[in-house]
Amino acid sequence: MNISKETVKYISNLARIELTEEEIEKFSLQLNDILRYIEQLKEIDITNISPTAHILPISNVKRSDEPRSSLKIDEVLKNAPQKEGLFFKVPKVIE
């Protein structure tokens, strides 16, 4: 697989990261190197191995449906760059 400059632009847009032309060039090369390295894995025979969804040997971690206290409202809004009343205030985004 080849990571073109278009792909880098596409990914940076998805991640909401603004890149300069030089950075796009640089990351395109770096990402290609990374992928080439990872591609060595393709040489391993995985015919009888099911895909790993999770690397830790644990499962079924759950809790009972018992309410716990929420954060106090001033703590909730403490780190908000902008607020109005009890609401978070954000730039208008219409999907």
Binding site: V61, R63, P67, S70, L71
Partner: peptide, 30 residues
């Protein structure tokens, strides 16, 4: 563990998990 009750004051039923604060971990409600 935040309550799901409908119609309460905004943002009073939130915690680090549902606000997505760093370091918080979700655990599924059985």
């Amino acid at each position: 563990g935040c309550s799901t009750e409908f119609g309460n004051e905004p943002n009073t039923q939130t915690c680090p998990v549902c606000l997505g604060l760093p370091g918080s971990l979700p655990v599924l409600n059985e």
